[in-house]
Design a protein around this nucleic acid. Sequence first.
DNA 1: TTTAGCATAATTGTATACAATTATACCACA
DNA 2: TGTGGTATAATTGTATACAATTATGCTAAA
Lengths: 213, 213
Amino acid sequence: MIDHKTVSLADQVFNQIETDILTGKYQRGEVLTESKLSLELGVSRTPIREELRRLEQEHLIEESGKGSCVIGITEKDVEDIFLIRKNVECLAASLAAKNRTEEQLSELLHAVELQEFYYTKHDADRIKYMDNQFHNLVYKSSGSSVFFDVLVPLHKKVQKFRKASVESKSRAEASVNEHKAIYAAIAEGDTEKASKLMEQHIENAYIHIKNTN
Amino acid sequence: MIDHKTVSLADQVFNQIETDILTGKYQRGEVLTESKLSLELGVSRTPIREELRRLEQEHLIEESGKGSCVIGITEKDVEDIFLIRKNVECLAASLAAKNRTEEQLSELLHAVELQEFYYTKHDADRIKYMDNQFHNLVYKSSGSSVFFDVLVPLHKKVQKFRKASVESKSRAEASVNEHKAIYAAIAEGDTEKASKLMEQHIENAYIHIKNTN
DNA sequence: TTTAGCATAATTGTATACAATTATACCACA
DNA sequence: TGTGGTATAATTGTATACAATTATGCTAAA
């Protein structure tokens, strides 16, 4: 079964701030004050503060005496994130090939097939969403919460820069095919192959991002 | 200059909870309630909650309907952490060899020399502290906040398991020598050597931990 | 005109009150 | 004796009030 976790209204409100940073609505250098966010999001400062502390830990904002300064994600950050992902995500794929459950396997397949479906529909937003799903499922299938906790934020942080990729017909198609191959390797339990394919997939993704941003 | 950042009283109080989880004072499965922590630490629930949300994000606790359940670090986590560190920290060392400033270099040297000094004094606590310093300085010298933000929490989370290493005469001595060699490679700007030495250093550290825990 | 100092305003940090939720224990009833 | 339901207690979630801090702008003097 695909996760359909119910998310509380409050959580949605909070995630809004993170989303607005990661999508670039709040630009680097912009100062967010608690009272402004409180008004804007319609909740009191208390929950806003909790979320700001969390974002601070994620290094997406920093305290600046007066207000929280948006840090956001630079192109240099993207380069570093892909360098780390290239070296860690292949390990996660390898572990997934070893540790995945049957249920996780069918979730992975479902994510790949849906992504292909949305590719034929030219639905960029949903392509991107299924891409997220696929990678997150690989992290989860590794059976390691450490890998999951390291990789989820890294993947999340490059979402703005993946926009062009999911909108590019050729790259979106290649990406689906690469996912298919990775899925097959994980299904076969071929750790070496899963690792190699994932490394190449991330390399390809980065090359495309570098050429379009 | 070595960082002597002034830490507010409140921050110290908050970090206390994290420290108590990472050192094992709060055991896995133990339930922490906000009011109990509030009494124990002498601050109101508001700042306690902010810290709990942060720890939740670090995956050190999880909400359990009633109270926050301590997750902590398992031996499996340690295995995964070292696997990731082995693959990422060598990249950080390589970047450090390329990007380090002169100031960072002298800070690194100072950390190595102090660690050796405390080794001759058999001061395990300070050996461990200088070990932290050294690795954190390497992360910082990489010039990448992404690497820093990924590696600092991973290194922090294995501190309980490093206890035996800093108390072992032979391992503590070997560790100092490995740090010296890594420092030298970073100073020379030899990225390949820095990477290889760091990878071996982490491998050695993990082998010792596995044999003593 | 520039600058020091002070008053004021804006903002954060903390405590507390109250509402909403959830677990627990107890009692009645089968 | 077991079970269901309800009252109660404990806990979290949110709002708000107030204190502490920090920026800002104004005034006065050099």
